[in-house]
């Protein structure tokens, strides 16, 4: 019913999270109505795909071989590496302005059943970075509180221990403003086991 090129565009738009067939159709027609905007979007996409790649040190997305964070000697000198599973997590930390060290982005979590192992997450590279840390260095594990996050944290902590580097993880438990009765059992279990004296 629709021209094949338009069908192809609609199909391509469905790649985006939360975009179903109807939303994709609306987006495609909107882009056709706004030719200048559509051209700018196509050009930006092309540029990003061609020029954004992973930082050779931390694996975060970068336009240069080494990203702007890893290029700052004062951040590297702090000898703190915060391990996150997604580039979005780096943004969250940076926006909160609470951390001045460097990062390592795993782009996923260990999941044996899905065939995702240490190689896919470049954990060998993280191990090399942890070897370069002194006894004062620290690996901060900021991975999701899921089974896969726990498996990945354990794997990293095992090799970090061999290199005598300190490993910490973010506190886990109830989120601010959330009612206890609404917490799921796993969250409650984390919060309970991590309770602190007041």
């Amino acid at each position: 019913m629709l021209p094949p090129i338009l069908e192809e565009l609609i199909q391509a738009l469905r790649l985006l999270p939360g975009v179903g067939p109807k939303s994709a159709q609306r987006m495609a027609f909107l882009l056709l109505e706004d030719k200048a905007g559509a051209t700018a979007l196509a050009s930006a996409l092309q540029q990003a795909v061609s020029h954004i790649h992973r930082c050779q040190r931390c694996q975060n997305y970068s336009q240069t071989d080494i990203c702007h964070i890893c290029q700052q000697p004062e951040r590297i000198k702090l000898e703190q590496i915060c391990v996150v599973s997604s580039p979005l997590d780096v943004l969250s930390f940076e926006q909160a302005s609470l951390y001045q060290g460097s990062y390592f982005v795993t782009h996923g979590l260990l999941s044996p059943i899905d065939g995702i192992g240490a190689e896919e997450l470049k954990l060998d590279q993280l191990e090399q970075l942890s070897k370069q840390l002194s006894a004062h260095g620290e690996l901060i594990l900021a991975l999701p509180a899921s089974v896969e996050g726990e498996a990945t944290s354990y794997f990293i902590s095992q090799f970090a221990k061999q290199h005598a580097c300190k490993v910490t993880r973010l506190a886990q438990g109830l989120s601010a403003g959330r009612e206890l009765a609404n917490a799921d059992s796993r969250t409650l279990s984390h919060a309970f086991s991590g309770r602190t004296q007041i």
């Binding site: 044996p112 065939g115 794997f155 095992q158 090799f159």
Partner: peptide, 11 residues
């Protein structure tokens, strides 16, 4: 079995 591989790696 990928879990076997993980066990080997964590020694």
């Amino acid at each position: 079995l990928f879990t076997r591989e993980l066990f080997k790696r964590i020694k």
